[in-house]
Design a protein around this nucleic acid. Structure first.
Lengths: 342, 342
DNA sequence: CTGTTAGCGCATTCAA
DNA sequence: TTGAATGCGCTAACAG
């Protein structure tokens, strides 16, 4: 094991003190340009690489953000991480990843790991299973800046960044209405999850605003999956008063709806409209292509980092940082275009 | 900022020395069970949380693995990270993520960040742009265990974990042959990438083994995308001697092929067979559903961590750890099933 | 502008 | 089995 070069080595080489080297390398304002230059060159020459561990221990800051996600296997979170990670790198932060796998127990472990690692802040998206949120308030009590993204809890006094699910569902429903569909149903997910609840509200309010019927039985609650989409569509189409369009809670659910419709030979969009939610990559390429709501995942990641960055800067001081809501963007494709052809 | 509890606090509380506390908490064999118990309880009571930074500085080990990926926006890498991260957590390791965004420059920065963070090991998947690999050999020279996954370079003496791309393409081609297709073409990606090159070889060898024609013009080199699939299919179908099946380099490329065929009203699989590569989630749900090669991404992540774990253990000592190749798994669906119906 | 001094919290050597 | 002493590499307060 080759011994690593330290600032002491550079100091010795140049006959100055380690403190000066440290300051020069951190671009401290009170160091002369000449010294900085010499130190830089010596560092380069000796192949010096700052030991962040020692630096962190001394300074009390790690420049690491802990990111807690339910799973990296879902492209939604990959996309958010993409956003977080890129802007974080640009600002000199590293990203520690932990997966809860939708379990409260692992989520708690993740928070503990972050605290142990002395991360400067935590960005978290809550697991489906979580009912006890004390690990989050604990982190907050430890004075670690924390913010939620996408899967949030508004009762903990923790800032968050989300997209406006209510508005997304509203826009989807409204788009179908404007295309001429009049009996619009909704397939949603488990209602203990805020996100899905908000979408139901947006869907309902759109119908009400346009004075269209909003039958109780037109809201089908399933799991979020292709299968749920099929089953939901099947149930809805078997009603005595079946709908002529469906707003699905998510793109794969919408895909299930499309499959069921195809099997029943119901032409989309001519006789039936379908709207998804997520803007997953495949939607653009299936037939008919899927209208959906874009969730701006990368932007969400970037905004999440920015918020965290501010929280870190102003921690302790009173701060104006509050929750932020991103606007969903309707992406209208074939599956909902009853009137005009593409 | 509440002062954090340290081992000194615990020591004071119990009238023993910090050294003993440290040993007790690390479950050192030479500490009495009684002391361990008392220390554990005091730690719990005082809400002690080990400072990994200080521990790392002293011990020289961080228990952090740096994972370098091209982008988190591709589900393939998300899936591998899922595999790495879960097994890493189980073994007490944290995961630091860095994205190269397919750029050599950022890749280099990532390696530097990892070295600065004093990670115990690096798992990397090479960027498309990378032509100079010195940052990898540099890390290795610094005595940091490093291994590649999926996107590898075999000329650096760095172990790697891949799936057998050659065999994957061979199996895809063979499957088409056994279904009765006889004029099989291939749409591949940039040939400076080993992965794609190997798939071309697998494709060619299958044709040869079954004594089928392998025209030079039946291999179309494009970018890896839906558009490349469309274009490749278009070019191949315009040949005076067009194929009756295509092995695509990847699922989205296969999707492009399917779109082009649909537009030309060529029935799949009856008159034309299509095979993808990746087993992306959408493939199961499109029409016709897509035959493809599963790359065992989660397993790849798990095996990557296991390999890294061994490298870390035996670093310095001569080690038997070599590259590992995972077996691809054909997933046969409608798009290639000429003979039998599902 | 630079040097001196001190210590972040822990793990490890050597002694007892 | 435990205590005492040391230092990992760096940064920050205080001097000069």
């Amino acid at each position: 094991m080759k011994k690593r070069v330290t600032i002491a080595d550079i100091a010795r080489e140049l006959n100055i003190t380690p403190a000066t080297v440290s300051r020069a390398l951190s671009n401290h304002p009170e160091i002369s340009a000449a010294t900085k230059k010499v130190v830089q060159e010596a560092a380069e020459k000796l192949d010096y690489n700052r030991n962040k561990i020692a630096s962190s221990l001394r300074s009390g800051r790690t420049n690491v953000i802990g990111v807690l996600i339910p799973t990296a296997e879902h492209i939604f979170f990959g996309s958010v991480i993409h956003g977080i990670s890129n802007i974080a790198s640009k600002n000199g932060y590293d990203i520690l990843i932990y997966q809860s796998n939708e379990s409260q127990q692992f989520e708690k472990k993740g928070i503990d790991a972050f605290i142990s690692a002395r991360v400067d802040g935590i960005l978290a998206s809550i697991a489906k299973d979580t009912t006890d949120f004390s690990h989050f308030t604990y982190a907050k009590a430890q004075n670690i800046p924390i913010a939620f993204f996408d899967r949030v809890n508004n009762n903990l006094g923790i800032p968050s960044i989300t997209i406006d699910d209510y508005r997304g569902a509203y826009l989807a429903t409204e788009s179908l209405i404007k295309e001429g569909y009049t009996r619009i149903a909704h397939i949603t997910g488990p209602q203990h999850i805020q996100t899905f609840k908000n979408r139901v509200r947006g869907y309902r309010d759109a119908l009400q605003d346009y004075q269209l019927p909003a039958l109780e039985e037109w809201v089908y609650e399933g799991n979020v999956s292709v299968e749920a989409g099929r089953e939901g569509a099947s149930v809805l189409l078997s009603l005595t008063n079946p709908p002529d369009a469906i707003v699905a809670v998510e793109d794969f659910t919408a895909l299930g709806v499309l499959k069921e419709l195809k099997q029943r030979n119901i032409p989309v969009p001519q006789q039936f409209g379908v709207f998804g939610f997520c803007n997953d990559m495949f939607g653009e390429h299936i037939t008919p292509s899927l209208s959906t709501i874009d969730q701006q995942t990368v932007l969400m990641g970037e905004e999440a980092f920015k918020m965290m960055h501010e929280l870190i800067q102003y921690n302790g001081a009173a701060t104006g940082v509050l929750s932020k809501v991103l606007q969903p963007i309707p992406v209208i494709r074939e599956s909902s275009r009853k009137t005009s052809k593409p």
